[in-house]
Each structure stands twice: as structure tokens, then as C-alpha cells.
Simulated assay, not measured.
Amino acid sequence: MALIVLFGDSLFNSFRNRQDTDLVTKLFQAARPNDQIQNLSKSGATTEEGLDYAQQIPKNCDLVVFEYGTNDAATDWGLAAKRYAQNLAKLVQPYQTRAVVAGPCLPDRTNREIMQYYPQDRLGQFNHLAQQTANKFHSPYVDLLAAFAKAEPSQTYQADGQHLTDYGNQLLVKAFLPAISQILDH
């Protein structure tokens, strides 16, 4: 039995109706029934907040799944790209080959209200930085931009254009499973 820690933002908290739910945690648990899933994610968090509570990650965990980048990349409330890269490296460094790293998730590209905060070039830049961090520490990388690029927006996103429906949460978890298996099932 492996202890898998989920460490990210509202996507891992399957945020809906203005509150966190345990849907994503349950989906990971169903996909990895012989492992223990602990979700320490914080809705609204950037890597800056992640650093503030990284000490909550149990030292004896077998794997940490880092899901940051969407809030970091937002033009109104996010961080500078350099700061994001530095923060992400600080988070991943203690775990290295026991970490899975993801970049930002693609918001609903048909929702102009939310997309005004997520220019494609900025999302691409943050995605590239997350991939570089994963490569630096020899950690598997999950490209959420690619995973959601062909998803049907009306089935995948809630009305806010950023948080996921049940179907979207299934896509999210499915995107991470190969990387988790790469570390734990070798």
C-alpha cells in the first residue's frame, strides 16, 4: 500500500457550488484501491500558498502529485512566470522521483469571461515551465493543456468555465494515472 498525496488547488478539490468536495479524492481512490489517497489541496492556491503549507505533506509518503499552475497563470491574481518556476521547483525538489508534476489546466476555451485571464501564450509558458521542472527532477510530467484540448467544453466544465463537471473530473484523474503508475507500479 502506497501513500499518495494530492497537493494542488481547486481542481483537486473538485470545487463546485462554492465549496470543496471529495469527488477527485474518491476517483483516485477507486482507481488505486490498494493505496491510501490523502488530499491536501487548497482551493484558490498558487504555488506561493503551496509553499506556505508544504510542511503538511507527510515525510513518509510514497508519492506527491503536484497540481499547480492554473491560478499561478491567471493574469489578474496569478504570479510572475519566474516566481511560479521558482516556487514549483522548491515544492518538487524534496520529492524528485517521488513526485508527479502538472502544469496549468485549460479553462473552458468557449467561456470568454474566464479566458480573458488566461491568454494562450501565458498558459503555454507556464506549462513549459512545469515541464522543465519535472525534467529537472526526473519526475513524470502531466500536460493538462493537452489532456483537455479536445474535451467538449459543455460536458467538461461548470458554468464558471474553470472548475470541472463529473466528466471533467474523470478526465483529470485519468490524465494522472499513467504517471502515478510509472512511479509506483514498476
Rank of each mutant, 00 (worst) to 15 (best):
E49S: 13
N39E: 10
P153T: 06
T25Y: 02
C61M: 11
W77K: 11
D52G: 13
A74D: 05
A74G: 00
F15Y: 15
L51D: 14
T97V: 11
P153L: 15
A179K: 04
A102N: 03
G124S: 10
R32S: 08
A175D: 02
Q158N: 13
I180V: 14
A134Q: 12
A179R: 03
P140C: 09
L6V: 06
R83G: 00
D166Q: 14
Q96T: 05
D108E: 14
L123H: 03
R18I: 00
Q131N: 14
Q86S: 06
N169Y: 09
G8A: 01
D185H: 15
E67F: 03
I180H: 00
L88M: 12
V100Q: 12
T156K: 08
F126H: 06
R112Y: 07
L144M: 06
A134W: 02
S181L: 05
T97Q: 15
T97H: 14
N71P: 02
L51I: 05
Y84V: 00
Y95C: 09
L129C: 12
L91G: 08
R83P: 00
V173C: 09
V173P: 12
Q182F: 09
L171D: 04
A146C: 08
Y68M: 08
L27H: 13
P140Q: 11
V65T: 06
D52W: 06
A74M: 09
T75W: 09
Q36L: 07
A2E: 07
Q162F: 01
P178F: 03
A81F: 03
T110C: 07
G103W: 00
A73M: 03
Y68F: 13
F15D: 05
Q55P: 01
A54S: 13
L27T: 05
A151F: 01
I57H: 01
S14L: 06
H128Q: 15
L63V: 03
D108P: 07
L3F: 04
R83C: 00
T133H: 08
K90M: 14
I4K: 00
T46H: 00
Y117D: 02
Q116K: 12
A73T: 02
Q155L: 14
Q120R: 13
Q120K: 13
R98S: 13
T110S: 13
Y167M: 04
G124M: 06
A102M: 06
V64D: 05
D35I: 03
D166R: 12
F28R: 03
I180K: 01
D72F: 03
L184C: 10
F12E: 15
